[in-house]
Simulated assay, not measured.
Amino acid sequence: MTVEKKGTSNADKMDWDKLGFAYIKTDLRYVSVWKNGKWDEGKLTEDNMLTISEGSTSLHYGQQCFEGLKAYRTKDGKIQLFRPDQNAKRMAASCKRLLMPEISEEKFIDACVQVVKANADYVPPYGTGATLYLRPYVIGVGDNLGVRTAPEFIFSVFCSPVGAYFKGGLAPVNFCITDYDRAAPQGTGAAKVGGNYAASLHPHEEAVKRGFADCIYLDPATHTKIEEVGAANFFGITKDGKFVTPKSDSILPSITKYSLMAVAKEYLGLQVEERDVFIKQLDEFSEAGACGTAAVITPIGGIEYNGKLHVFHSETEVGPVTRKLYETLCGIQFGEVKAPAGWIVEAK
């Protein structure tokens, strides 16, 4: 492992209680280059700037993908990653979809652990609710002009401390249905690629201007089924106590969602169903939420559809099952609740 470091750390200047979800330059990041058919060993570097060819495929043709995961400080001071093997598998699938060289699970996890250990002073203290967010990414680079896969690639992992998502406590927010599509049928919806997020910027802005937290995307083929809630996955708790979440080839396979499915079944004893969720059948749910890495769970107070707001449990109070799901999964992530085998990787 090569380390390029010249400056000094600013970790001792952090105000953990004032962190938001924003970029903060940390001491070191990991960079590896794919050239002549293979990845190099990779190194840690202090430089947070990339210099790439103006012809890079990532700039012109969107040949890039990324991941998001967190490192958590436990009560006894340990630092642990939550299910990085699942992020590695998803990134490999995204790379395959975009004709980019895959990152092995071993290399991916090793890079993440190196970055966490090198920036350990930036992992927020236990009890603040704050975490160290990791952003692995792969981009196509090198001199190129035509629409083709890149001659070279960069795999990098950087990190930034982020604050507790809910500053005022877990609280429901409202969403609206959009007529825009997040992804095309048989497109890149199941891959974590930048183009999916670029396409969501305008619908999100429209929803916020109308007073909603974000918009909900329906399936692109029929516009009858819920797919994603902004940049997160949807789940609902039926009136007879089942945990239900949409199933579709154009939904990003959320690691948080699949973790919540396991928590619902193994910890809460709920029946779990991954299936179609029709927008006209919202009455079957007593609670609903959006789930993802950043917030874990964002409770959904209501969904506006065809000019009418359908309210679930409450617009002001979190449903009991949603709260228990949130507390249990957060407990696992911060080391307060025993995790299923293989879910935790300690950075040591």
Rank of each mutant, 00 (worst) to 15 (best):
1 M>C: 11
4 E>H: 13
8 T>Y: 07
10 N>D: 13
13 K>W: 13
14 M>C: 09
20 G>V: 12
24 I>Y: 14
24 I>S: 15
26 T>R: 01
27 D>M: 01
27 D>H: 00
31 V>T: 08
34 W>A: 14
36 N>F: 02
36 N>L: 03
40 D>N: 15
42 G>N: 08
42 G>L: 12
43 K>C: 10
45 T>A: 01
47 D>T: 07
49 M>H: 14
52 I>V: 13
52 I>C: 03
55 G>A: 06
58 S>Q: 08
58 S>L: 10
59 L>I: 14
60 H>V: 08
65 C>I: 04
66 F>K: 09
67 E>P: 00
75 K>C: 06
77 G>Q: 03
81 L>A: 04
81 L>F: 05
86 Q>F: 13
95 C>E: 05
100 M>P: 08
101 P>E: 07
103 I>L: 11
106 E>P: 04
107 K>F: 15
108 F>P: 14
110 D>Y: 14
116 V>C: 00
117 K>F: 00
119 N>S: 03
120 A>C: 07
122 Y>P: 15
123 V>L: 05
123 V>D: 01
125 P>C: 03
127 G>Y: 04
128 T>S: 14
130 A>Y: 00
130 A>C: 12
134 L>E: 06
135 R>W: 05
138 V>Y: 05
138 V>T: 10
141 V>I: 13
144 N>F: 06
149 T>R: 12
154 I>D: 10
155 F>Y: 15
161 P>S: 03
163 G>I: 10
164 A>W: 04
166 F>R: 07
167 K>Y: 06
167 K>A: 11
172 P>E: 03
172 P>Y: 00
173 V>A: 12
173 V>Q: 12
174 N>G: 01
175 F>E: 11
177 I>G: 11
177 I>E: 12
180 Y>M: 13
186 Q>G: 11
190 A>H: 09
196 N>G: 00
198 A>L: 13
199 A>E: 12
201 L>K: 09
201 L>H: 07
202 H>W: 15
205 E>V: 12
206 E>A: 13
207 A>S: 11
210 R>G: 09
211 G>W: 06
213 A>Y: 15
215 C>V: 14
215 C>I: 08
217 Y>N: 09
219 D>Y: 00
224 T>D: 11
224 T>M: 14
227 E>N: 05
230 G>D: 01
234 F>V: 10
237 I>D: 02
241 G>H: 09
243 F>S: 06
245 T>E: 03
246 P>N: 03
250 S>R: 03
256 T>G: 02
256 T>E: 04
259 S>A: 08
259 S>C: 04
260 L>K: 04
260 L>W: 05
262 A>D: 15
262 A>P: 07
266 E>C: 04
269 G>P: 01
271 Q>T: 15
273 E>M: 09
277 V>A: 04
278 F>S: 14
279 I>P: 02
281 Q>G: 04
284 E>N: 08
288 A>M: 06
288 A>K: 02
294 A>K: 00
297 I>H: 00
298 T>Q: 11
300 I>S: 02
301 G>E: 04
303 I>S: 05
303 I>M: 10
307 G>Q: 09
311 V>E: 08
320 P>F: 01
320 P>Y: 01
321 V>W: 11
323 R>T: 10
323 R>I: 06
324 K>L: 12
324 K>A: 13
325 L>C: 05
327 E>A: 02
328 T>R: 03
329 L>K: 00
332 I>K: 01
338 K>L: 12
342 G>D: 14
342 G>Q: 07
344 I>W: 07
345 V>I: 15
346 E>M: 07
347 A>N: 05
348 K>D: 15
